[in-house]
Structure formats: structure tokens, C-alpha cells
Design a protein around this nucleic acid. Structure first.
Lengths: 151, 151
DNA sequence: TTGCTCCTCACGTCACGTGAGGTGGC
DNA sequence: TTGCTCCTCACGTCACGTGAGGTGGC
């Protein structure tokens, strides 16, 4: 079944990072540390861990936030699996379910604000570059035109 | 005229950075150091310096590159003013002018590639967030629906 | 003259990179 | 058994932050 466990090097490869980074994130508490691991024993990871790490790296890279800010932004993610577990237990009131959904929606809204601000900045930058290119191309055309013109 | 010189603190304020960063960029050669400045004397900056710094900070922030990569990406900018000066001297062949334009266009093309890749990544991320939100909203609606439904 | 901003060291910090020396699983 | 990957220190590095102590211009 899909319960195969990965080693840290495989996870690093899958997520495009390094083993050092993964250990560092665990050290500062961004990634959970396996409770029952003995000193010196290998770390193992499941599919959910890989997914979480991928999201963390994507946010950090795309949004340029510090790991401290990332920790706050990612609280949603970290609690998602816990919420999912809680969700599955049958004896859960509709009110509680609704509250969980509201909270998750709030976190996503926060992330969307950051992502969209970034995108707007990037688009401004791109527009600026395109305008500059247009200007240079016009100069190039005028240069070529004057060149072939009669004296 | 517009030839007023600014002090480092004003430049920091205008560009949204710190004086330390400006001095550091000068130290590693990302920003030019005034040739004739005596030891201990104040640094002064012109409008062109402010513009260049703004572009550097924007690239670094939006593209997430190291200062070393930034140095390469920004070579275009750093040579722009020199090219502009060369451009103005009248005794310049059309061939040379065309070459200058070609080079500038090449640098802009490089930057556009990086910017557009970033934008694509951000858009994928945004799409993912929106999809997740949609799913959560659907769950919320179903929850509210079942709640009010007749037994 | 009094502040305020600037100056130059220089040590601290964040987010890892990079060996050093050693143990563990196909 | 032989490699290969993993482990834990621990020091190095990049891009600054943050005082310490002192000088210079409205």
C-alpha cells in the first residue's frame, strides 16, 4: 500500500532542497520531529510530510518571507492534518465542523492576499521591462531607417 | 535644477531599505563608491543612484536571487548609464549604436525570462489556493444545507 | 551651541553550506 | 563484506542587524 516511508535524501530530492535544510526546519520546529526516534537513528517521512515540506518551500521561495513569518502563515497547513483527523471522528457537531472550515478559509484568505500582492508587484515589474524593450526597439528601427535613407 | 544630492538616510527612506544595506552593497561593489570621498566624509547620492538602487532591490526581492546573481543580472543596468553617456557623444557609428541597443535588448530579454517564470509559478500557487478554497466552501455549503434539511 | 545624521569598526544573527568523524541498512 | 546514505557536532558564509564610540553639517 501507499504507506512506504522515505529517507531524508529522497525527500530532499523530491522537493528540490537539501538534507541540511530539512534537518534545520526540524530543529527550529517548522517540521515535526518523529517522537520515537532514537539518537542516531534514521529519519523517515511519509507522503504527507513531503507535501507539507513542498508547500513550505514554495511559500518561502515565492513570497520571500522569513522562517518566522512562514511559521505563522503555515499554521494553517500544520493544523490541517490535525483538523482532518478531528474531522473524521464521527462524534463532531455541525457547529464545530463549520468553525473548522471557517478557520481554514481564513488562513487561505491570508495567503491569497500575500500571493496576489506579490503577483501585482511582479506584473508591474514585467510591464516596466516591456516598456523599456519597446523603447529600445523603436530606437533600433529608427537607426536602421536613417541608415538606408538618401543623403 | 534637479542636481540636488541626497544623504544615505534619505536614500534609504526613498527606497524602503536601510543605510546598512546601502553601505554593504557599496562594500561588495554592487553600488559604485564615490571616487573622491574622504575617509569619514558623508556619502551623497543623485537621482540616478536612487533609481539604480530601487531596481536592484526590486529584482532581489521579487526574484529571490543572491547578490552575486544580482550582480550579473544587473550588469545591464550598471552599464546603462555608461552606454547612455557613450550614446550622447556625437562621433559614434551607427553600427556601434546598433550593437549597444542589441546588448541592452539581450539583457532585458534575460530579465523577462526570469520574471515570467516567477509569475507562472506564482499563478500556479494562486490557482491551487483558489481550488482549495472552493473545495472548503462547498463543504461549508453542504454542511449548512444538511443542517436545515427535514429529518 | 545643541541635536541629528552621518561615519567606521566589529560582533551578532538568520538560514543554511560544508566538512569531520562515525554508525546503520540494502 | 563493501558502499552508500545516514547520523551528530561544529565551524564557515551570506546578507545584513545592531550597538559602540566618534565626527560633521543645518
Amino acid at each position: 500500500m501507499g504507506a512506504e516511508r522515505l529517507r531524508i535524501g529522497q525527500v530532499a530530492e523530491l522537493t528540490g532542497t537539501t538534507t541540511r535544510t530539512i534537518r534545520y526546519y526540524e530543529e527550529i520546529g517548522l517540521l515535526p520531529s518523529e517522537g520515537g526516534r532514537e539518537r542516531g537513528a534514521h529519519r523517515t517521512y511519509g507522503a504527507a510530510d513531503v507535501e507539507r515540506l513542498r508547500e513550505l518551500l514554495q511559500m518561502k521561495d515565492l513570497l520571500g518571507v522569513t522562517l518566522e513569518e512562514l511559521r505563522e502563515l503555515a499554521t494553517a497547513e500544520s493544523s490541517r492534518s490535525a483538523l482532518r483527523r478531528e474531522w473524521r471522528t464521527e462524534e463532531l457537531s455541525d457547529a464545530r465542523r463549520a468553525a473548522i472550515l471557517e478557520q481554514a478559509l481564513g488562513h487561505i484568505a491570508d495567503q491569497l492576499v500575500v500571493v496576489r500582492n506579490r503577483r501585482a508587484e511582479l506584473e508591474r515589474f514585467e510591464t516596466e521591462l516591456v516598456a523599456r524593450r519597446r523603447k529600445l526597439r523603436r530606437m533600433a528601427r529608427e537607426l536602421a531607417g536613417s541608415e538606408g535613407a538618401p543623403a
